[in-house]
């Protein structure tokens, strides 16, 4: 246990070097302690996100176990016709878009850590744009489903020789599809809001190598959104 800790009772937040940091909260001894604590809190929050989505993943798994054939038939409708073969075009593109946005995010964090303020803003804006592309593609996908009546529960109105209305399993598949991608989409939307807030602050010059906690934490959030999609993608678009 450290014995070199400074007197935490001194107000105003000075770290070991005596520099005043305006973001230092009074109940932390050092900026480093404050940063570590914020990060720990963020990780705990991310775990609650994993378990929140996890409940839906478990529900999806159990329902797929109950209606395996119906789920496979239904998931064919998430694919597009590419050169005469069904291929999950939208899903694959969206996966790549999100991966690239994760990269721009981490580059933004890196730029903030190394005092490159212009670069920080640039990478954060790029991340927002990629998130918008993701949502745009999602919108196209959703409108196809709406058009085909492939909707959850009481809204299910598919008129075709396959996926007959009233058969157990089909509406459930699309219920889970919309719940999980919808909840994920809400997280992307929240992410766009957070990133815009970061851009505003980064332009103001709030972040530097001495204080970049918000960029780092939003980065973690953004990566967990990506990580959840990494699991959503094969389960919905690639099961066979």
């Amino acid at each position: 246990m450290s014995t070199t800790l400074p007197d935490i009772h001194s107000h105003g937040g000075h770290d070991e070097h005596g520099e005043h940091n305006p973001y230092h909260q009074h109940h932390f001894a050092t900026m480093e302690q404050q940063f570590d604590t914020s990060k720990l809190g963020m990780w705990l929050f991310l775990v609650t996100e994993i378990l929140l989505f996890g409940g839906l993943f478990v529900g999806f798994g159990l329902m797929q176990h109950r209606y395996p054939q119906q789920f496979i038939e239904a998931h064919e409708h998430l694919k597009q016709d590419i050169f005469g073969r069904p291929f999950p075009l939208y899903g694959t593109i969206n996966t790549l878009v999100l991966l690239i946005s994760s990269w721009t995010m981490v580059m933004g964090v890196n730029a903030a850590q190394t005092d490159q303020k212009k670069k920080t803003v640039r990478y954060l804006v790029l991340t927002i744009l990629l998130a918008c592309v993701f949502l745009g593609i999602k919108y196209v996908e959703y409108s196809h489903k709406f058009h085909d009546g492939l909707l959850p529960g009481i809204f299910y109105a598919h008129q075709s020789e396959d996926l007959i209305k009233g058969t157990h399993g089909y509406a459930t598949f699309f219920a889970f599809y919309f719940m999980m991608t919808g909840l994920h989409g809400i997280h992307v939307l929240v992410g766009i809001g957070l990133l815009s807030w970061l851009v505003m602050r980064a332009r103001r010059g709030d972040f530097s190598s001495a204080y970049y906690t918000p960029v780092d934490l939003v980065g973690l959030y953004w990566h967990i959104v990506d990580m959840i999609w990494i699991y959503l993608f094969p389960l919905y678009y690639l099961i066979s």
Partner: peptide, 18 residues
């Protein structure tokens, strides 16, 4: 309370990189 005894301020050292 952090058990770290080193005193780097935030941003003094970073791993990873582009």
């Amino acid at each position: 309370m952090s058990t770290e005894t080193h005193t780097h301020v935030q941003g003094a050292k970073h791993h990873g990189g582009p």
